[in-house]
Each structure stands twice: as C-alpha cells, then as structure tokens.
Computed example of a mutant assay.
Amino acid sequence: MPETEPWEYTLSIPHDPRAVTVCRRTLRLILTLHGLIRLADTAELLATELVANAVLHTKGPATLRVRWSAGVLRIGAWDADPEPPPPPHDLTDLTDAENGRGLALVRACSDLWGWQPLARNGSRGKYVWCELTAAA
C-alpha cells in the first residue's frame, strides 16, 4: 500500500552516461520500498529520458529529484544549462527517428510535465519535471 506521507529523494549525478542506469535502478528501489511498484515501469522510462537529456545535452553535473505528495509522483532532472528544452514533437512524427523522442515520450506518458529556470549551488540551470498521478 502506498504511503500517504510526503517524501522526497535527491540524487546528485556526475556528467557520465552511466548515471542514467544508476538513476533508473535507484528510482525503482525507492518506489518499491514506498509501495509504489505499479508506477515503476513508467517512472523509470520518464526518469531515463529526463536524466539522459541532462547528461547528453549539457556539460555539467545533474540532479534527479523524486517526490511523492498527495498521490502524485513528481520526477525531475536539474542540469546546468539554463536554455529551455526544445519543444517535444508528436510521437507519430518520430516513428522512424533514432533520437529526439525523449520529451515526446515524457509528454505522452506523464500526466503533466514542464520546465523552469532554477539555480542550484550558485549555478544557473533548468529543472525539467513530470508528474504521474497514482490511481486510488
């Protein structure tokens, strides 16, 4: 049974493509321990896309943040690039594409998503997030 009390985890990650796997596995463990395993597959996909964008398209460290509150799971990735993410395409336009589907998947698989400028430890950057609502 999922917990009703809010919680939040933050994982600082280096600029390293292997961090995507670490984040994905850590997220599954967090969700399992909090009784939210039914959200794990979709949450892993979303976190993978957000963290991969942060690691592959920027030049600094990144942070994964996972928060549960009032039946909503928010997954977000901070990176040191203050430029907004490119607008997502429609998935139907990307069926043969080998890349560029990340934010389109986030938009299609989440209940809500967005981004905002965010400074962290004196570094300007952005925070790209999405939410999954847990059915009661």
Rank of each mutant, 00 (worst) to 15 (best):
D41Q: 03
P88H: 00
V20M: 13
D96A: 05
T21K: 08
H57P: 07
T42G: 02
S69P: 11
D111P: 05
E8L: 07
A77N: 10
I30Y: 02
E5I: 02
S110R: 01
R18W: 03
E3K: 03
A47C: 13
E8C: 06
W113M: 00
G76P: 09
G102I: 06
P6L: 08
I37A: 14
N121Y: 13
Y9L: 13
G71H: 05
L50W: 08
V51C: 10
L11V: 11
T10I: 10
P85D: 03
E44K: 13
A108V: 00
H89A: 14
E44H: 02
I13V: 15
L91M: 14
L64H: 14
K126Q: 14
R74V: 03
R24N: 01
R67T: 06
S110A: 14
C23T: 15
K59W: 13
R120G: 01
D16I: 07
D79G: 01
V55R: 01
K59Y: 12
P84I: 10
G71N: 06
D16N: 09
L33Y: 07
V128P: 03
T26D: 13
G122C: 12
I75S: 02
I37P: 04
I75M: 01
R74G: 02
M1D: 00
V128Y: 04
C130E: 00
V66E: 06
A52F: 10
E3V: 15
R28Q: 15
E98V: 12
V72R: 09
T63K: 11
P86L: 12
L112I: 05
T21A: 14
Q116V: 13
E3W: 02
I13R: 00
P82K: 10
C109G: 00
L118A: 08
E49I: 08
A134K: 04
H57M: 11
A52Y: 02
L11H: 05
R24S: 15
P117T: 12
T48Q: 09
T58V: 01
W68C: 00
A104E: 07
A52H: 05
L39F: 01
L91I: 05
R124N: 04
R38W: 01
G114F: 08
P14W: 02
S12H: 01
G35F: 01
H34P: 00
H89G: 03
V55G: 07
D111R: 14
D79N: 13
D16Q: 10
T10A: 11
G125D: 03
L36F: 10
R74M: 03
T63E: 15
T32H: 12
G122W: 09
L56D: 14
G114K: 12
E3M: 11
G76Q: 05
G122N: 04
W68Y: 08
R38M: 02
R24W: 04
L45N: 11
L45G: 04
L118P: 03
T48W: 07
R65G: 00
I75W: 02
A108W: 06
T32P: 03
L64W: 09
V22M: 08
L132I: 14
K126H: 10
L29G: 13
L94V: 11
S69E: 12
Y9F: 15
E5H: 09
R25G: 13
R24I: 04
L31Q: 09
L29T: 15
A97L: 14
E131I: 05
L29Q: 15
A80K: 11
D96E: 12
A52R: 04
A104P: 04
P14Q: 09
L132M: 06
R74H: 02
P61K: 05
P85H: 06
P84Q: 03
R101Y: 07
T92N: 10
